[in-house]
Simulated scan of single mutants.
Amino acid sequence: MKRNKIIFYIATVLLSVIVLFSVWMYIFKHDMIVGSFTHLGYPPYLIYPYAGLKLLGLFAIWNPNFNVIKEWAYSAFFFAFVLALSSHLMVNDGGHTVALMALVLLIISYIFKQTNK
């Protein structure tokens, strides 16, 4: 039981670091992110709402009282990371590594979340 909690916390903390770094980049390096979003084919007006939704998703994942919302957050992050992975692979810009790491950490966090009670 203790091993499972440790795995959950390590995976979720590393996932949170990746997501918080991306939110930080969206807010404080906005001009660079506009270029990245445009290069990937996404409209730049999605940057700030996407950053806010990422923060809400992290809040839901870490909050033990929101079980249904937590499932939705895991689902949303899964689709976001799969789409990010495929977008980076399609334009071949090398950004797929972080998306793949986030996806793996998300899956590990989800598998071991049931034991975190």
Rank of each mutant, 00 (worst) to 15 (best):
P43F: 00
L20N: 09
T12A: 07
A73T: 04
F78D: 01
I10H: 05
N65Q: 12
Q114A: 13
I7Y: 01
Y42E: 00
N63D: 14
A102T: 02
N92K: 09
I10A: 07
V68H: 13
S22I: 04
A60T: 14
L53S: 04
K113D: 14
F37L: 05
F28N: 15
V13H: 10
I27Q: 09
V34C: 05
Y110D: 02
S109D: 08
F37E: 08
S109V: 01
K2E: 13
K5C: 08
V91Q: 04
L58Q: 00
I18G: 05
L106Q: 06
L46M: 13
K5M: 11
V19I: 15
S16Y: 06
V19Q: 02
L55W: 07
T115S: 15
E71Y: 12
V19Y: 00
F21K: 09
Y74V: 06
M32K: 05
L105N: 00
H39F: 12
P64H: 10
A99P: 07
T38W: 07
M32Y: 05
I33Y: 00
D31V: 01
N4Y: 12
L100D: 14
A60V: 14
F78Y: 06
G52A: 12
A11I: 03
A51W: 07
L85R: 04
N116H: 15
T115I: 12
S36H: 03
R3N: 06
P44W: 03
T38L: 11
K54T: 07
Y110E: 05
R3E: 09
L89H: 08
I27N: 06
Y9V: 12
Q114G: 15
A80H: 09
I6R: 13
Y48H: 12
A11Q: 01
F66K: 09
S36P: 00
I61A: 02
G52I: 07
Y42V: 02
I108R: 04
F112T: 04
G57P: 01
M25K: 10
S16Q: 08
Y9I: 11
F66I: 10
M90C: 02
T12W: 02
H30R: 14
H96V: 02
G94P: 11
L105S: 02
V82R: 06
S16M: 06
H96D: 04
P49E: 06
S87D: 00
L85D: 04
F37Q: 07
L105V: 03
V104W: 05
N67D: 15
F28W: 15
G35L: 08
I107H: 01
P64S: 08
A102P: 02
H96M: 05
I18D: 09
F8P: 03
L56H: 00
